[in-house]
Nucleic acid binder design. Sequence first.
DNA 1: TGCTGGCACTCCCGTCGCGGGAGTGCCAAG
DNA 2: CTTGGCACTCCCGCGACGGGAGTGCCAGCA
Lengths: 339, 339
Amino acid sequence: MLDDRKLEVLRAIVADFVSTNEPVGSKALAERHQLGVSPATVRNDMAALEEEGYITHPHTSAGRIPTDRGYRLFVDRLSSVKPLSSAERRAIQTFLEGAVDLDDVVRRTVKLLAQLTRQVAVVQYPSLSRSSVRHLEIVHLEPSRLLLVLITDTGRVEQRVLELPAELSGEEVGQLRQAFGQRLHGARLVDAPAALSDLPDAAPPGLRPVLTSVMTVVLETLVERPEERVAIAGTHNLTRSPLDFPRTLQPVLESLEEQVVLLKLIGEVNDPTMVHVKIGEENAVEGLRSTSVVTVGYGPDQGAYAGLGVVGPTRMDYPGAIGQVRAVARYVGDLLAGP
Amino acid sequence: MLDDRKLEVLRAIVADFVSTNEPVGSKALAERHQLGVSPATVRNDMAALEEEGYITHPHTSAGRIPTDRGYRLFVDRLSSVKPLSSAERRAIQTFLEGAVDLDDVVRRTVKLLAQLTRQVAVVQYPSLSRSSVRHLEIVHLEPSRLLLVLITDTGRVEQRVLELPAELSGEEVGQLRQAFGQRLHGARLVDAPAALSDLPDAAPPGLRPVLTSVMTVVLETLVERPEERVAIAGTHNLTRSPLDFPRTLQPVLESLEEQVVLLKLIGEVNDPTMVHVKIGEENAVEGLRSTSVVTVGYGPDQGAYAGLGVVGPTRMDYPGAIGQVRAVARYVGDLLAGP
DNA sequence: TGCTGGCACTCCCGTCGCGGGAGTGCCAAG
DNA sequence: CTTGGCACTCCCGCGACGGGAGTGCCAGCA
């Protein structure tokens, strides 16, 4: 149905429309790209492409613009990832080096991504459940109050204050500390329940009640609490071309303020090592139906810590954005895996 | 120069313009408000007000709109703080109760403030330097690595990993812990340097080098690092009436993404117990010259933990915003001071 | 001196009509 | 299947126009 030239025409339409933001006509297309055919032929191809739903036109005598479906075809079959320029590579390096802690890494990353892609950037903090324990500290605040501090291999720190049913001696707290430390050190958080399963039996009987209660809280803090954070930057890029979001900026901004929405956006990926692209109506989130979202997981080699990506108009430089998102994800993944 | 009726006219202009967002004419003004004079008289007053720079008009035959100077006069002398409705009071209570930790409190507060005022809300995290130490924990991660965890009375937790020049024994770490704990417990962070000043002399000579190096880092973490965070919400409110920010939305969004800018915005107050209002051109920040900012400090009684406030168009319901900002600040202050 | 009604004037704004132009769809010929 | 030609459609910018809201000024009146 669609021969190579028609696809080439679609590619040209996407390219022109992305760069000019104006409906593109047959004549301009035949001239600017060397298609080797006349505008009339291009028109025929356009009619076919429109028949198939890949392009449309705002009114009868206007040029064509790609539909969501057209962008989808473009992304899937007509484009290859754009390699980064050396300036971009340098920008990534200089931007991320010198980060002092996890917060700093994430903040720099999201800002970098926003600048690089000139879109809205979103970066999820390394997910708790996918990290492993570097250190678990139990602090004896008061006789009947403990503070749990968890440090993960990604540098993330979680803490929780815990009220005890009974008072504990310093010695008992030391026993607790040792018991948990031994079993959890280096363990992945998802494996924590298994690692702790033998704990009640192994403990001295007198300590058992308090131990199980501490254990409950530890597990709750470590595993069950889905406290996922995201950072966002570059929202002003949405206003760059006012035409892209005529009156629909409000729902976009609203959606971007909902942590839940963002997490859904970034988290909903099958294969975290691949870059995923959601185009316009493909988005599950109501308010983002007028945008496209490019996401990828980041982390050491296989397992992903978390996700990051960009949100922009469907009229987006997909090859560029995909390349940039992937590059940043790799770099940050290495950075966090390093130390 | 300006008698009572002229001021009344100004107040009416502000009121009408804020609610309708349209230049207000003499006739409509005389009708809607009971000024007891004719439109012609109102016109004379308007001419005087314009002469003084309190109002202006977009073109010769249009109604009047307040200038920044006009809003200033309105805020300073012509308005009183609007008391909260009972629905608003209830909203504050239900919104903030059930917050589990500091992060949660701040997140809820900023969202609440955005909903209440229908503007962009900004909340600074309780400032480190103004809080006091609830607990300082020193964790012996490895022979030559320490982890410092600081918990403030506001529930804020800061941590820092510290590489030592030499290895330490567990016993020595215990000594460190005790030395710092004794001196810092309950102390305000600004007083930390003083509280620690006698430390080198009091310590056993063998421990001195490492102790001073730890001390440096502690002070750095506690006091010098100006790690101030802010939360923001409600940016979509900027798009509510597109007329307010015709083409100036971009710089506003850009400014609001700069932490530094926000901190400056909120931090620059003389008396933290008072609500401060910056109108349009009064703002030091370039990109926010088209907005007004209403801020106040929050915290226990006198000393302020930090600041919070809202950013909106100069055409803002000042009496309402001031009341809401103040109410939220008080409530959050109490909430944090309580436990 | 200050308020008022009257009146001319200004200027915005929505509407309409009018070309120009870009682009399309279709057709017949190569 | 491609191509040139051609009629048609519809947007868009422009200027003209009239209504209307609002102003500024002035003269009269308390």
